[in-house]
Amino acid sequence: METKYQRVILKLSGEALAGSKGFGIDPATVQTISQELREVHQLGIEVAIVVGGGNIWRGSIGSEMGMERAQADYMGMLATVMNALALQDSLENLEVPSRVQTSIEMRAVAEPYIRRRAIRHLQKGRVVIFAGGTGNPYFTTDTTAALRAAEIDADVILMAKNNVDGVYSADPKTDIEATKYESLTHLDVISKGLKVMDATASSLSMDNDIPLVVFNLNEPGNIKRVVLGENIGTTVGNQES
């Protein structure tokens, strides 16, 4: 099959791994995501993944408890490592070779993030899972996705959302007049304050001319549809398509 993209970064929220539970790691959900990733991998696509940790811990929760923000963020980074290891195990049970690379070194469980090694893994057909965020507090995993996409020269960032099929002018769950955008520019996202990714991540994507496709993860087969070039979700780039 002819594919639209050759090297992609899939941004998964921590909540995506929690399934209907809303917290923790749901094995059935992780397996379903892994099976879809196997189908994409079998097309010869080079797949890298940035995973969040909100299903286990959020820095904002720590702040509400009076915890120092940096400390809370580091705990969130550790949560992303747990998610990455669960995803790696599920992929390898399906015979999809994978590597976890962390921004914070923990050599007993994962490789440290090394840009050239990550690219080499991708070239050898291994799925690379980036964990630990950027390794710095005050940055989200959205920013990690934009940063890693620029570093490994990814063709696109696939923003997989839970039960949201694109970018809307307002929250479609609370505003019946919310309209869906087929395409946007990064500048539109920033100026309109749309909740696609945080401003730092949007700026990074704009500066490095990295397109985004925002789509519904919960629709079976959507990851494969996106890489094959089907027009689903919302495309964000430096020029409207």
Rank of each mutant, 00 (worst) to 15 (best):
Q6V: 05
K11S: 03
G14W: 09
A16H: 01
L17T: 01
A18G: 00
G19C: 03
K21G: 03
G22E: 01
F23W: 04
G24Q: 02
V30S: 12
Q31N: 13
I33Q: 01
Q35A: 13
E39K: 15
H41V: 01
Q42V: 10
Q42Y: 03
G44H: 12
V51M: 00
N55H: 05
R58E: 01
G59R: 08
I61G: 10
S63P: 03
M65F: 13
Y74N: 06
M77C: 07
T80D: 10
L85A: 07
L87C: 09
D89N: 12
D89C: 02
L91W: 03
L91H: 04
V96N: 08
R99I: 10
V100C: 01
T102G: 15
A108D: 08
A110M: 14
A110H: 14
R116V: 12
I119D: 10
Q123R: 14
I129S: 13
T134R: 01
T134Y: 02
F139D: 09
T144N: 02
I152V: 14
A154S: 10
I157S: 09
M159F: 01
D165K: 08
S169D: 06
D175T: 13
E182Q: 13
S183R: 06
S183G: 06
H186E: 02
H186F: 12
I190R: 01
S191V: 11
S191H: 10
M197A: 03
D198E: 02
A201D: 02
S203I: 07
S205G: 09
F215C: 06
L217M: 14
N218G: 00
N218S: 04
N218M: 12
P220N: 11
P220E: 06
G221K: 09
G221F: 04
I223M: 15
R225H: 10
V227Q: 11
G229D: 01
G233E: 03
T235A: 06
T235N: 04
T235Q: 08
V236W: 07
N238R: 13
Q239H: 07
E240W: 04
S241D: 05
S241Q: 10
